[in-house]
Design a protein around this nucleic acid. Sequence first.
DNA 1: TTTTGTTGATTGACGAGTCAATAAAAAATC
DNA 2: GATTTTTTATTGACTCGTCAATCAACAAAA
Lengths: 191, 191
Amino acid sequence: MPKVGMEPVRRDALVRATITEIGRAGTLDVTVAQIARRAGMSSALAHHYFGGKEQIFLAAMRHILTIYGAEVRGALAASEGPEGRVRAVIRASFSEGSFRREVVSAWLHFYVLAQTVPEARRLLGIYQRRLRSNLLRPLRTLVGPRAEVVADRLGAMIDGMYLREALADRAPDRAAAVRIVEGVLKGEIGQ
Amino acid sequence: MPKVGMEPVRRDALVRATITEIGRAGTLDVTVAQIARRAGMSSALAHHYFGGKEQIFLAAMRHILTIYGAEVRGALAASEGPEGRVRAVIRASFSEGSFRREVVSAWLHFYVLAQTVPEARRLLGIYQRRLRSNLLRPLRTLVGPRAEVVADRLGAMIDGMYLREALADRAPDRAAAVRIVEGVLKGEIGQ
DNA sequence: TTTTGTTGATTGACGAGTCAATAAAAAATC
DNA sequence: GATTTTTTATTGACTCGTCAATCAACAAAA
């Protein structure tokens, strides 16, 4: 019973299914058929809409980065003062939408994807630069010339927390993660 | 021209070739044939000695963990005082043997492997616990009850530096990495 | 003659991508 | 308003390539 205007619905379903399946399987070796089945359609349709497996992966990656970006923007808008801005970025990084088992798993796999697929690398590069500058701006007024080093430190810590979470058996602990990273910030801005 | 006593030689060559190939290809999707060719033998022989692809990967992982462990032990033995111990662990983590492009790439892929292969997860778990206790012991005398948090912080930072390195285009900068992490330590032990 | 080393050829499975065919909505034509 | 035509949605079946794993066979040392 073909209804018109299915394209965006299907694309969206496939993107979500991709993230779920990567998280569930713990591999990039999920088949297009698996993803399509979870999204409730045939693999042929998945190919029809996306052209190929790689493009499905890239779309899923863009989706995750978009959500993360939106959360950061939202948190920044609701924040005040330089310290508030930095804390906003940190908290957004461990927010409900991004710091979830499957999403963390997908992140890990996107890092792997970025090793071989230029577009994936580009996307990840954009994310890293944005994170960096989001931290850098408020940090400059907080710690002056040391801003660069501190931004690197905080950035690496956030990435590290994600990596550790990818291997943990328990569910992600947002509060603990924020506490750990904010502790470093406190140390850097002198109490 | 079969010579006797080849087994250890072949196994070693395969392990090295595995790390090289994973780093070169940027994927766990390296074929047994590729690895075997780089190690100078047929794929059949690789299967003969290791039994299967997964076991080759695990052997490569054990090799990397062994080297890392040895470097940490060596650095610890040559260190003095609690602060010296912590710095020794940090420096060993970014030492020449471990903080190299292909090895970093292999680490990333082992994290992925650990998502699905129990033995890989076990090995990575051992590494994480060892790193933690290596940091914890000297930290207890340095920062007392805060040792746990600080150890988590340093551990996450080290992992994070690795993750970032996996995506960098330039060659790993050991000195810079050490500087970044040691900065946190300084902050924690109060100058 | 038994053990150890070694490989080319083969098998069997699996999976990405293609294609032809079907069906229903929408648009165009009368 | 009733047609034909075109566009959009959808899939089952198929092709083609790849790759892990096996095996039979050969070679040299013990």
